[in-house]
């Protein structure tokens, strides 16, 4: 057949696939005011964490006992704690700890959950049963209790907290990825790939994983709120980052003693935690609306 097709000229210059997807994602996000606000808050936090040495008015551990427990003022915008340390500076430095925890946990949990989930979903049968029962077992551990056990075994610290949270945070991701893989493995394009002899590894990594990534990313973003809270709880219990590190949960814990007379010592880090987890939540919700076509807004 020699017929020719009316050639649609590409409407825009072609960028790389990832760049184009990101740009489209951001323009979609701008139409969701709440999600966009969450995105901006997260960006501010990341910038604060990265540029903490430049932004923080005082070093995080600078003590000045003469200025202890001062209320918010022009000099100390958010007041000072019991050692006269500037709370705003400590919050900015603390953003580093929170962001490091959140990103490390996500970087561990995302790939692990994705691989376990798609392997179970793709192979099915016995592989699926073994992997999913294992997932159920892990899912039944409360992460705080496991972190307690971990801290007892390895000593409390930020890295222990990251490992403990990671150990309990991957099962929901794995279940999600498995559910997606179950759908994708029965599609015609996977059947076609099997007929032209694509190996199992190739099918998993190049055919099935890309289809599961968007929902995993959404789930990870929503998880980040939980991770923030769990990390703060561990700090509060004295099992996460250790003093004098300016970890937000630990700051609340220290400020508890002055709650009635010097409320700002505990409330300011509490606000930081609240705003951060709220921002992750609304961003995750907006991403779900954008990336997951099955989830339509009511």
């Amino acid at each position: 057949m020699q017929d020719t097709f009316p050639l649609k000229t590409p409407t825009q210059t072609r960028m790389s696939g990832a760049g184009m997807a990101l740009r489209r994602f951001y323009s979609d996000l701008r139409r969701e005011p709440l999600g966009h606000a969450g995105f901006i808050v997260i960006m501010i936090l990341i910038l604060a964490a990265v540029f903490a040495p430049l932004l923080a008015p005082y070093p995080a551990a600078r003590q000045s006992l003469g200025e202890a427990l001062q209320s918010p003022s022009a000099q100390h915008w958010l007041g000072t704690d019991e050692f006269g340390r500037d709370i705003l500076s400590r919050l900015i430095w603390g953003a580093q700890i929170t962001m490091r925890t959140v990103l490390s946990v996500s970087a561990i949990v995302g790939p692990v959950g994705l691989m376990i989930g798609i392997t179970a979903g793709y192979f099915g049968g016995r592989t699926d049963a073994i992997l999913m029962r294992f997932t159920d077992v892990v899912l039944s551990f409360p992460s705080l209790v496991l972190a307690l056990a971990f801290a007892a075994a390895l000593g409390a610290g930020l890295n222990t907290a990251i490992i403990a949270i990671s150990l309990t945070a991957w099962p929901p991701i794995a279940r999600l990825a498995r559910a997606e893989a179950l759908v994708v493995r029965n599609t015609d394009y996977v059947a076609a790939a099997r007929i032209y002899g694509a190996s199992h590894l190739r099918l998993l990594l190049l055919y099935i994983a890309p289809m599961c990534v968007p929902s995993v990313v959404v789930r990870l973003t929503l998880n980040m709120a939980t991770i923030t809270l769990t990390a703060a709880s561990l700090g509060f219990l004295g099992l996460g980052a250790q003093p004098p590190m300016p970890e937000w949960g630990a700051m609340i814990s220290a400020g508890r003693r002055f709650m009635l007379d010097q409320w700002w010592v505990a409330v300011m880090p509490g606000f930081a935690i609240l705003i951060t987890s709220l921002a992750f939540n609304v961003l995750g919700d907006a991403m779900r609306d954008i990336l997951d076509p099955r989830h339509t807004r009511g």
Binding site: D188, Y189, A192, I195, Y196, S199, M211
Partner: peptide
């Protein structure tokens, strides 16, 4: 094999060039 549904038989995240090079590569 050629499948019935042309909307389900091509990987939505692979460009056409990729869809064609994959079988040859495999």
């Amino acid at each position: 094999m050629v499948f019935q549904d042309p909307f389900g038989s091509l990987h939505p995240r692979h460009r056409i060039g990729r869809a064609l090079s994959e079988p040859a590569r495999c």
